[in-house]
Simulated scan of single mutants.
Amino acid sequence: MAALRRTLHVATLAAGARRALAGSLAGSCLADRRLWDKLHADARRGSVPTFDWFFGYEEAQGLLLPLLQEAGAACPPRVLDVGCGTSSLCTGLYTKCPHPVDVLGVDFSPVAVAHMKSLLEGGQGQTPLCPGHPASRLHFIKADAQNLEPVASSGSFQLVLDKGTWDAISRGGLPRAYQLLSECLRVLSPQGTLIQFSDEDPDVRLPCLEQGSPGWTVTVQELGPFGGITYFAYLVQGSH
């Protein structure tokens, strides 16, 4: 969470907007939905369609695309982005992945979900998003990542993405973060992969993931540096 408490490298926002959002986070509880409603509403007034903590799809695609190709048993493979916000992960997978993919973004902020639905459908005078493959699909649903029962059945996704969501929820206490992890693993295929993107040091994150993921393999890869900051991709995987 260190990078969330200082000005982050947010490639999709102008410098002035980045400073304003970083100021809004100071002393705030990042597990509070009202905070995210306000941040997403503020971001919608800008000139860019998406907002990314840490980094966006372009920086993550080198890791994501090979994993999707490995998930060839499911066609198209299903991807869940928990706490998607207005990130470019979902839209990037949908518009740029050359293989068919079925992407679902969930967030507890109705403001974020409404914005992403509008972006997908070409609202507010924008051009609708075009899939990178004719069979690809993209949906956004309002849901709490700590309780995915209403939107996702057990073992139904080959890839689950968490970019900063554990970081935010853990500010409200580790039990809530472990509930998020439990739900992510419940909806993940036994042969699938959960990826947590974070700037948190492996010495802190790995013991938490290993404790909360018995029977799963936990590894870490460095990403970046992006904007002078090194990030980590924590992979929780079943049998491959």
Rank of each mutant, 00 (worst) to 15 (best):
L4K: 08
T12M: 12
L13P: 01
A22W: 09
A22K: 08
G27A: 11
S28Q: 15
L30S: 03
L30K: 00
W36N: 12
H40W: 14
A41K: 04
D42Q: 12
R45Q: 12
R45L: 13
G46M: 07
F54I: 13
G56L: 04
Y57M: 02
G62P: 03
G62W: 05
L63I: 06
L63Y: 05
L67Y: 13
L67R: 15
Q69F: 08
E70Y: 07
E70Q: 14
A73W: 04
C75W: 14
C75N: 10
C75F: 11
P77C: 02
P77D: 03
P77M: 02
V79F: 10
G83K: 03
L89R: 04
T91E: 14
G92P: 14
K96E: 10
K96H: 11
C97M: 06
P98T: 07
P98Q: 10
V101R: 00
V103W: 04
F108Y: 15
S109G: 10
P110V: 01
A112K: 00
A114S: 14
A114C: 11
S118P: 09
E121F: 10
G122C: 03
G122V: 02
G122S: 03
Q126I: 11
L129S: 05
H133Q: 12
H133W: 08
A135S: 13
H139I: 00
H139D: 09
D144A: 11
N147G: 15
E149Q: 15
V151G: 14
A152Q: 01
A152T: 01
A152F: 00
S154I: 12
S156K: 09
L161A: 11
D162C: 10
G164W: 05
G164N: 06
T165P: 00
W166G: 00
A168F: 02
S170C: 10
R171H: 05
G173W: 08
P175V: 02
A177N: 01
Y178S: 00
S182R: 15
C184T: 06
R186T: 10
V187Y: 07
V187R: 08
P190Q: 02
G192P: 00
Q196N: 07
S198Q: 07
E200V: 15
E200G: 08
D203P: 03
L206Q: 07
P207Q: 04
E210W: 06
Q211A: 15
G212A: 12
S213N: 11
G215V: 03
G215I: 04
V220C: 15
E222C: 12
L223Y: 12
G224P: 11
G227H: 13
Y231V: 06
A233Q: 04
S239N: 11
